[in-house]
């Protein structure tokens, strides 16, 4: 499988990364295809009946008790914000 420029553009869009068409796009296309070419070898492995391993540890999840012991520090939440208005985060207006 080899990525064409349109696909690279679509992935970049999904990943929300602006790509410079003249320079970055062709370079990334080449690099991504090298990587995909390398991982192509996995096709030869027979995985019939094999369960996927998703996590680093396949044990049952621990659950915590329903207690309020976090939050309540809006100043800390907002302290790093590049833009805020009052106690809100601010972003360019979204038109829905």
């Amino acid at each position: 499988m080899s990525l064409d420029p349109a696909t690279v553009r679509r992935i970049a869009k999904l990943a929300r990364i602006h790509l410079d068409d003249d320079d970055e796009l062709p370079r990334l296309q080449k690099e991504l295809n090298t990587i995909l070419g390398y991982v192509e070898q996995l096709a030869e492995v027979n995985v019939e009946g094999v369960m996927p391993l998703s996590g680093g540890m396949e044990i049952a999840m621990r659950m915590r008790e329903d207690v309020v012991n976090d939050g309540g520090y809006p100043e800390k939440i907002l302290a790093n914000a590049p833009d805020r208005i009052g106690d809100f985060f601010a972003v360019p207006k979204v038109v829905e």
Binding site: I11, A15, L28, E31, L42, V47, P52, L53, S54
Partner: peptide, 28 residues
């Protein structure tokens, strides 16, 4: 680069061929 590869292997139509397959081989 890695975000792009990661986005691609999870995207619709490629998940099974790449990500799921890789997780199975990880099991092996």
């Amino acid at each position: 680069r890695r975000i792009m590869i990661g986005t691609y292997v999870l995207s619709e139509g490629y998940y099974d061929a790449y990500y799921l397959k890789a997780q199975k081989i990880r099991s092996l």
